[in-house]
Amino acid sequence: MIRHRGRLRRHLIIVGSASGTIVDLVRGLWRSTGGRRWMIPLVVFLCSVGVILTLAAGVEALAPFIYSIF
């Protein structure tokens, strides 16, 4: 039986694991044979935006306000 978690809790877990994904992405770009290192700053910035989007999705009723703060 899969234990159901609340929406906000799920999104907090996702946000908590985001750093690992960003590290994976940066490491991949760094090692990439196609010369992708110049993308790293942009990717890190966009991933940070993504973390905020994910948080906003966790509380969809407050999403416009979170965007406004951002």
């Binding site: 910035f45 966009l46 935006v49 989007l53 906003a56 969809e60 009723a61 407050l62 999403a63 416009p64 979170i66 965007y67 406004s68 951002f70």
Partner: peptide, 20 residues
């Protein structure tokens, strides 16, 4: 309300991302 909030959030996020 949620539909309205999401439309608003969508507009704001589009604006921010277009600026980016």
């Amino acid at each position: 309300y949620l539909r309205l909030a999401l439309i608003l959030a969508d507009l704001i996020s589009r604006l921010i991302l277009t600026l980016v």
